[in-house]
Nucleic acid binder design. Structure first.
Lengths: 232, 232
DNA sequence: CGGTTAATTGATGTGGGTCAAAAGCAGTGG
DNA sequence: CCACTGCTTTTGACCCACATCAATTAACCG
């Protein structure tokens, strides 16, 4: 079985569709590919620790973060099924971020050297990688703008909208209820606030009838209102 | 004259060395390249406005920013001689940012279609582009962490260090005095603070004997102290 | 010389942090 | 079945880093 490098079903997807349905195996498959299933909360990748593989999240949720010296961490991206851990990881050995599983996940690793080699010749693959870099870059720039310029309400609304769209792009959503495995602590680490303030803002959103977030599902009651708050 | 796509003298440089010394011309040169000199403060690029060219800053300073709806702007990168406006601009027609000249600048534009075509075959060029994407991506991730997790002093110290290193990489620095054309307003827009608070923090750094910033030059008196404050 | 733009400084306000307690809610094990 | 533990969320009281508003000074320039 070879990596499905031409799959472009999801906007920023890499080979998600194939791997979401592929049976995960706990071990390596030659030198080309590795599969693994990992429990919720486990460390997947560590900042600066080099690896010869490029990883794709096949199932479950995960997140990338940067550790800061005072003990805090900044989550800079949530990973959904089909996502490359980082599009740039194809070009660098040691990631500039760490990653943790949010739920139980299945991941797949490709030998970087081989992938890179193919990148030189395969235009299709080049284009997929370029698209992935693009969407990564745009998301990063938006997050920078949000963190630098926006209030707590705007930050949280932005995050919810951003995730809603990504979830909706990859699966059918019924009755505006989105699967949402983040704890408030994760939201806090992603938007640069404290968990207690996140709780306050979410309560506020709830009593204003905008969104209700509980038990791992995000229910969007007044999407236009959320967009009014959370757009750049 | 063809673009010097193989020049890798500066870490994140594109073809800076050649263009810094090349005589700028005010008009196009066939369909492949365009040169222009632009005055300080002028708009160079506008968010969402598509163009068929990929731009490189040949001389002077500029900055990229994202406009937010409430009137503020977030500067997400300062551009030094030799920098691509954005490494991702090779792959997208309309930039997700705007750009302005900080000083008088000289810029050079390459036809995107042609550059992209060459990218498919030319491994050297691919590698240069990949390196540029990498350093862009790492810088963005660091800025996200700084904005989300750090205090005003840390943010400003980080920005100063980051720029110091980039300046030092591209030119000789005498007596720890760095050319520094930013106004306090630019610093404020880059680190998500108000200009008056930037002024206060800089005064503090000055009276503590860490840095002195005046008249377009940044004098670093106690570099270790600055690093202690501004590292991630 | 007045007019403009940048930097500084002071007084006061506030969004969000910190600290702490309580409440809800899985597990877990007797 | 209930007590115990640990984790998450909520709520309240208080605090502080930074914003806001406003006045002053300095530099530059036609």
């Amino acid at each position: 079985m070879s990596p499905c490098v031409t799959c472009t079903r999801r906007e920023s997807g890499f080979c998600g569709a194939a791997f979401r349905t592929a049976p995960p195996r706990p071990s390596t498959n030659g030198d080309q590919q590795k599969f693994a299933a990992v429990g919720a909360g486990k460390q997947l990748l560590t900042q600066g620790k080099s690896s010869d593989y490029v990883f794709v999240l096949c199932a479950g949720w995960a997140f990338r973060y940067i550790q800061v010296s005072d003990g805090g961490r900044q989550i800079d991206r949530f990973l959904l099924p089909g996502d490359l851990f980082s599009s740039l990881s194809i070009f660098e050995e040691a990631p500039h971020f760490s990653a943790k599983a949010l739920t139980t996940v299945q991941i797949c690793g490709f030998a970087r050297a081989e992938l890179r080699e193919r990148c030189f010749d395969d235009r299709e693959l080049q284009s997929v990688v370029a698209q992935s870099c693009l969407s990564d870059g745009r998301d990063a720039a938006q997050l920078i703008a949000i963190l630098g310029q926006c209030s707590a309400e705007q930050r949280i609304a932005y995050l919810l909208l951003h995730l809603m769209r990504r979830i909706a792009a990859s699966q059918v959503v019924r009755e505006r209820r989105y699967p949402f495995p983040l704890r408030q602590q994760h939201i806090a680490d992603a938007v640069g606030l404290t968990p207690v303030h996140v709780s306050r803002v979410l309560s506020l959103f709830r009593e204003r009838g905008i969104v209700a977030l509980a038990d791992g599902v995000l229910e969007v009651i007044d999407a236009p209102a959320l967009e009014r708050i959370g757009q750049l």
